[in-house]
Amino acid sequence: MRRLLPVAVAALALFSAGPFLWSVLTSLKPAGELFRVPPTWIPRSPSLDNYRDVFEQRPFARYLLNSLLVAAVSTLITLAAAAPAAYALARLRLRGAALAEKAILAFALFPPAVLLVPLFVAAREAGALNSRLGVALVHAALNLPFAVWSLASFFRAFPAELEDAARVDGFSRAGVLLRVVLPVSAPALAATAILVFIFSWNEFVISLTFLTRDELRTVPVGVAMLSGVTVYEIPWGQISAAVVITTLPVVAAVLAFQRGIVRGLSAGAVKG
C-alpha cells in the first residue's frame, strides 16, 4: 500500500496535468511547427512569440485584473450571502426549510445562455451594463444555489453539541455562526470558495454581453477575441499561450486556498 502511493500520485499528476502540459508545449511552438505531421513533442525551436503576441494583440494584463476583481468580489458576495442562509437551513428548524432548499436548487437548473436575454433586460433597467460589479452580482446569484447547498450539507455534519455549548455561554446565533461554525468549517468554506471563484473566473456568456467596453472585459472573453486577420483563422499557438496565462493565477489562488483545507482539519481536531 505504501509503495503504491507514489505511483498513484504520479498517475493523478499525469492525468490532471497531461493535457495542460500539451498546451504548454504547443504554446512554445512557432507557427511553422504547429502543423507538422507527425507532431513534434518537444518544440524544435521553442519561442515565446505566442506569449508576446497575446499581450500585444489584446490588453491581457487588464483582462486579468478585471477577472480577478469580478471573481474575488463575486466569491465574497456568494459566501457572505450563502453562509447565513445555509446555516439557517441546516440548524434553525424553520417551517418549510426543506421546501426552500429544493426551491434554491431549482434555480441552479437554468443555464446562463437561457437566462441571458431576461438578465440583460434586468441589468439594463438597473444600469448594470458595462459594470464589473453588475457582472460580479450576476455571477454571485448564479453561484448561490451551489454555495448554499454545499455549506448547508457541511454544517449539518458539524456536531450540534458544540454550538449548544456556545449558546449556553451566551453567544447569539450570529455569534455562533461567526465564531464557532465558520472557523471549524474552514475546509468546506475553502472548497466552496475555490469552486465558486473558478466558476466566475471562467464564465463567458454574461461577461461577453454585459461588458462591451474593452477596458472592462474579462479573460475568457479576451481569449475568444484572439484572432488572425481574417474570420476563419484560428491562432492555435496564441490560444495555447492564453490557456497557460489564464491558468497560472488560478493555480496560485488554489495553492493559497487549499491550505484552508489543512488548517480547518487541525482547527477541528483541537476544538472537537
Partner: peptide
C-alpha cells in the same frame, strides 16, 4: 465594439 472572433458569438451580441 470589437467582439469575439467567432461569428456566432458576435451574432449573439446583436441578437441579445
Amino acid at each position: 465594439v470589437e467582439g469575439p472572433a467567432s461569428t456566432d458569438s458576435r451574432e449573439e451580441m446583436y441578437i441579445g
